[in-house]
Simulated scan of single mutants.
Amino acid sequence: MHDIRTTSLASVHALYVAKVERKGRTRAEVDEVVRWLTGLDQAGLERHLEAGTTFADLFDEVELHPAADRITGVVCGVRVEEVEEPLMRKIRYLDKLVDELARGKAMEKVLRG
């Protein structure tokens, strides 16, 4: 069984971008939600994408946005706020933000503005 924790951000980022582009959104918007959640700037995000940083290493290094705990709802049949393992909850937060983006939610709402 594949473990998402050891998957590179870059491989999933490409899937996120493909998902939102099918719905008329952009890579820039995906990058914006990743930066918002992780506190990275664009150069830092690009470094992690190029380096093949795993989700485990990424979330070990960054500090989540203070409003991240306001990310709630269901992704892949799982309520993100009920995910007990901290790393998996952080990954699900990112999944949820991208999901909301793909569903056409306004960026201000996606970023819990």
Rank of each mutant, 00 (worst) to 15 (best):
D3Y: 00
I4G: 00
I4E: 05
I4C: 01
T7H: 10
L9Q: 06
L9E: 06
S11N: 14
V12S: 14
H13R: 11
H13T: 09
V17W: 01
A18G: 15
K19Q: 15
V20D: 10
R22Q: 14
K23L: 12
G24Q: 09
R25K: 13
A28N: 13
A28M: 08
E29Q: 15
E29K: 05
V30G: 03
V30A: 04
D31V: 01
D31P: 03
E32V: 13
V33L: 12
V33E: 07
V34F: 00
V34Y: 01
W36H: 08
L37V: 01
L37Y: 01
G39E: 06
G39C: 11
D41V: 09
D41P: 07
A43I: 11
A43T: 13
A43D: 15
A43M: 13
A43N: 13
L45T: 05
L45I: 09
E46R: 15
R47H: 14
H48Q: 14
L49Y: 12
A51I: 12
G52P: 09
T53Q: 07
F55G: 04
F55C: 05
D57W: 00
V62F: 02
V62Q: 01
E63H: 05
E63R: 06
H65L: 02
A67G: 06
D69L: 06
I71M: 04
I71E: 04
G73P: 02
G73T: 01
V75L: 02
C76D: 13
C76E: 14
C76K: 04
G77A: 08
V78D: 00
V80K: 00
E81Q: 12
E82W: 03
V83A: 05
E84A: 11
E84S: 08
P86V: 05
P86G: 03
M88F: 04
K90M: 10
I91Y: 03
R92V: 11
L94G: 02
L94S: 04
